[in-house]
């Protein structure tokens, strides 16, 4: 028996989130002392498979290379994972939009529960997961023969990208179900670090007033700090930035070294996405804004004055 981790990748590169999920697998493996396998399903995904084979602690990389895995559609991926499920006690993926899309489907096909967004492993059957926007932590125990789990990446430090020497095994693709077709994909191109993996995040809310302000005021600060940029739901809904910037209960969960919330009030749904950051700074003109209750350093000021001042002084 072994533990299977589903790789998050774009065929060329293995995403860091995969190594966070492998870290959770390694925790589970402390009591099981078995092997960790990684499934790389994609098209022309040899590079991603090589990178997976180099990750510390991985014993085997299983590769399914076929056109119909290229777009990572849930129907085909889930069918493939279910075909590979035998021999595995646990199936894990990072709680990314792909992981969240696919693993519940896998669990239902296996007739087992899925455990979402775990942040800690207590033993091979027992896990901790946040509920109610992170305002409570549930410790849950699974009695299912196979545990299907998504891993909150901020809960587990990524294992090393190198040091492993896994064997690579190519497997037969499942047949294309042909139920879903990718028509178009618009990914935000940015030279900045990825939000989910950034050390510093500069985040703007409704207080920015406009998309133009968001960019002209916050970008210089992000540039100075080498930071990723995030936003509240209100800023995204108002069209200041695109949806992939949203931090929160229903957006991205982040835990950088430094999170700077600017013109963000601190609604519970926003806090759910960033309150595990190491250091939180809030800049808000309202001294009673709830964001100050979680901020390590609060500055009551007009952001249009304070942020340029900050940029100049850094």
């Amino acid at each position: 028996m072994s533990i299977l981790v589903i790789a998050e990748h774009d065929n060329l590169t293995l995403k860091v989130a995969t190594r966070n999920a492998i870290a959770a697998a390694a925790k589970i493996n402390i009591t099981l002392a078995t092997e960790i396998h990684v499934l790389v399903a994609g098209v022309a995904c040899g590079d991603a498979a090589q990178q997976a084979a180099a990750v510390a602690g991985v014993a085997k990389v299983i590769v399914a290379d076929a056109a119909h895995y290229g777009d990572q559609t849930a129907e085909n991926l889930a069918a493939l994972i279910v075909a590979q499920a035998g021999g595995h006690t646990h199936i894990l993926a990072a709680a990314t939009s792909n992981g969240k899309n696919t693993l519940p489907r896998v669990a239902a096909l296996l007739d087992v529960a899925q455990i979402s967004d775990i942040i800690a492993v207590l033993d091979a059957d027992t896990f901790v997961r946040p509920i109610y926007a992170g305002n409570a932590l549930a410790t849950v125990k699974s009695a299912d023969p196979v545990k299907v789990i998504t891993v909150r990446t901020t809960g587990f430090d990524a294992v090393e990208a190198s040091g492993g020497h896994a064997v690579i095994e190519n497997i037969q693709a499942s047949t294309d179900l042909g139920q879903a077709k990718l028509v178009n994909r618009e990914l935000t191109k940015s030279a900045r670090p990825e939000l989910a993996a950034a050390k510093i995040i500069v985040s703007g809310g409704r207080g920015m007033g406009s998309g133009e302000n968001y960019h002209t005021v916050l970008e210089p600060l992000a540039d100075k700090l080498g930071a990723a940029m995030g936003a509240s739901r209100a800023a995204v809904d108002a069209g200041f930035v695109s949806n992939d910037y949203q931090v929160g209960q229903t957006g991205k969960i982040v835990a950088p070294q430094l999170y700077i919330a600017i013109g963000i009030s601190g609604a519970i749904q926003h806090l759910a996405g960033m309150k595990d950051s190491k250091v939180i700074v809030a800049i808000n003109k309202d001294p009673d804004a709830p964001i100050f209750q979680v901020a390590d350093y609060g500055l009551v000021a007009d952001l249009f004055q304070a942020v340029p001042e900050l940029v100049a002084a850094l």
Binding site: A113, A136, L137
Partner: peptide
């Protein structure tokens, strides 16, 4: 299929300061 063993409070953040 899952048993909830317990539900606890998340670790609180220690209060910060205004600068």
């Amino acid at each position: 299929r899952l048993t909830t063993l317990k539900v606890t409070d998340p670790a609180p953040r220690s209060a910060g300061v205004k600068v």
